[in-house]
């Protein structure tokens, strides 16, 4: 492999990788445009879409509940001492609500769904691809892209916002239990104080960015699975790439969305 360090080969290698990178970006672009075309044009795969809503939503509920609750409890415990130092412990419910609604709920939900559902989609479609099940679907006059891909991307896009709202609520419940345990705050005053600083814009942004994360997870899982090759190795790679790429993109998107929201809010 030593020849790779020779400037000529290194240059050739880099050119090839750049070429591959742009080809891949173009393939993803085509994949996304095809998704919108297939989603908008009939026939619609209602049954499979509902099935995927169930697969993504209901089956992720327990892990979202657990992580949401723990997030709320831990964040409250960690923040209390800092706020108490400035005599601002009464701001704890507002702080937790802002942190959960604006950042933690959509981000943690998306990361969990990327790990749980994204990898599952990548592996499932990858294994269907390498065992010719997708071809079998095509020769039975079924559009596999519409049936397998469009339904899954729609499901992740629609369900991640719902799960993020749910996680926000469960996180606040965890925070309330911790606050109630330490400060004997009532349920009503905790939530009144929590929602004091939350605006409709915050909720809309939560829904919007969760939908973007859900779309990203769906596209990353489906693209890698649908284009898997090289047998079982390809299936593993598809599952792995789906998770890594979607997690990476979720953080990039988080950063961009926060910048945009701040720009529109404050100019």
């Amino acid at each position: 492999m030593a020849y790779n360090f020779h400037p000529y080969y290194l240059n050739k290698h880099l050119n090839m990788n750049f070429g591959r990178f742009f080809l891949r970006v173009y393939a993803i672009w085509q994949f996304i445009t095809r998704f919108f075309r297939e989603v908008l044009l009939p026939p619609y795969e209602y049954k499979e879409i509902i099935n995927q809503f169930f697969q993504v939503g209901i089956r992720s509920l327990s892990i979202i509940t657990l992580t949401g609750f723990i997030t709320g409890v831990v964040f409250t415990k960690q923040s209390r001492s800092s706020l108490a130092e400035f005599g601002a412990a009464s701001w704890l419910p507002s702080l937790i609500a802002i942190a959960l609604i604006r950042a933690l709920a959509p981000l943690v939900t998306a990361l969990i769904i990327a790990g749980k559902v994204g990898s599952n989609i990548g592996a499932e479609l990858g294994s269907m691809k390498v065992t010719e099940q997708i071809d079998a679907m095509e020769v039975s006059s079924t559009n596999p892209f519409k049936f397998l891909v469009a339904s899954r991307i729609l499901a992740t896009t629609a369900i991640v916002p719902v799960l993020a709202i749910y996680m926000g609520f469960v996180g606040l419940m965890g925070a309330y239990m911790n606050v109630h345990h330490n400060e004997q705050t009532s349920f009503t005053s905790f939530f009144q104080s929590a929602f004091m600083k939350i605006t409709f814009l915050d909720v809309w942004v939560l829904l919007l960015k969760s939908a973007v994360y859900g779309f990203t997870i769906g596209v990353a899982g489906c693209f890698n699975g649908y284009n898997a090759d090289q047998g079982t190795v390809g299936v593993g790679r598809a599952a792995n790439t789906a998770v890594v790429v979607s997690m990476f993109l979720i953080f990039i998107e988080e950063m961009i969305i926060v910048q945009l929201v701040n720009y529109f809010k404050h100019g």
């Binding site: 499932e124 294994s127 010719e132 071809d135 679907m137 020769v139 006059s141």
Partner: peptide, 20 residues
């Protein structure tokens, strides 16, 4: 093409049964 495919049967090398 979909209409034509209903008139063609394809038996795959590894059967390609839907696992799920």
């Amino acid at each position: 093409l979909q209409a034509l495919r209903t008139r063609i049967g394809f038996s795959f090398q590894n059967s390609a049964l839907y696992d799920g």
